[in-house]
Amino acid sequence: MAKLHLTCREATELLSRGLDQPLGRPERMALWLHLIICRGCSHFGRNLRVLRDRIVTGVRAGTVSSSAQMLSAAARARIGALFGNAHKPRDQ
């Protein structure tokens, strides 16, 4: 049984988990009651949404695939060479 009175620490845990899986009814109720009176946690919850939305947007737009997140050319060549690559020029 979830308790009705949440600390901010508990409320932020529920806010975070709520992004990844549906919360139970008592948890939602307790969270709702807490958010009515707590500005800090409301901000935290809103910021979590902003974070999630911007990541989703970025992943979709491909912003996330910066060069730092790609296999380096050197590694690619090294790994490719292991499979006796087809890049060998054919004779004639």
């Binding site: 600390t7 800090g40 901000h43 902003v50 911007r54 970025g58 912003t63």
Partner: peptide, 25 residues
């Protein structure tokens, strides 16, 4: 120790367009 914010977080403004998306990443 009572589980309350020491400093409540400020609210982030919602992103306008995609202008500062690079900054965000």
């Amino acid at each position: 120790e009572r589980g309350h914010w020491r400093d409540a977080p400020p609210v982030w403004s919602s992103p306008e367009a995609g202008a500062d998306q690079r900054d965000f990443w």
